[in-house]
């Protein structure tokens, strides 16, 4: 995944089954963002892999004042890349576990 300057990681162990998963997001390189992010620290949130889109969460983070509107796409992409990796890993590992 491209380095967007925004890091998104799992905030819990992924059991491969739950649709809702805890993620943690923080700014690693503020220079890559257009707007100046509030000095947030790490933002932990729950994401529903089946029902929600990264764009929804990114917009909510902008509405909450964590990021500037001009960075909503970068935040959404960062979340999307991590979600894609989680789903990819589930597809590969889950059949083996079963």
């Amino acid at each position: 995944a491209e380095d967007t300057g925004v890091r998104v990681e799992l905030a819990e162990e992924d059991d491969g089954q739950k649709s809702s998963i805890a993620l943690r997001l923080w700014v690693e390189d503020p220079k890559k963002l257009k707007g100046k992010p509030k000095d947030n620290g790490a933002i932990e949130f729950t994401f529903d892999l089946e029902k929600e889109t990264p764009d929804d969460v990114a917009q909510e983070m902008v509405d909450a004042g964590f990021f500037h509107e001009s960075d909503v796409k970068i935040v959404a992409k960062s979340i999307r890349d991590r979600v894609a990796l989680i789903l990819w890993r589930r597809e590969r590992i889950w059949p083996i576990l079963q």
């Binding site: 923080w26 690693e28 947030n40 620290g41 933002i43 949130f45």
Partner: peptide, 27 residues
């Protein structure tokens, strides 16, 4: 802890806490 802050937006809960020093990229 006092360092953790909870923010709600559009019904979603965001828990904000300091990023561990080890995870911040050297500027």
């Amino acid at each position: 802890s006092s360092l953790t802050q909870v923010v709600h937006s559009a019904g979603r809960r965001f828990i904000v806490s300091p990023v561990p020093e080890s995870r911040l990229r050297e500027q």
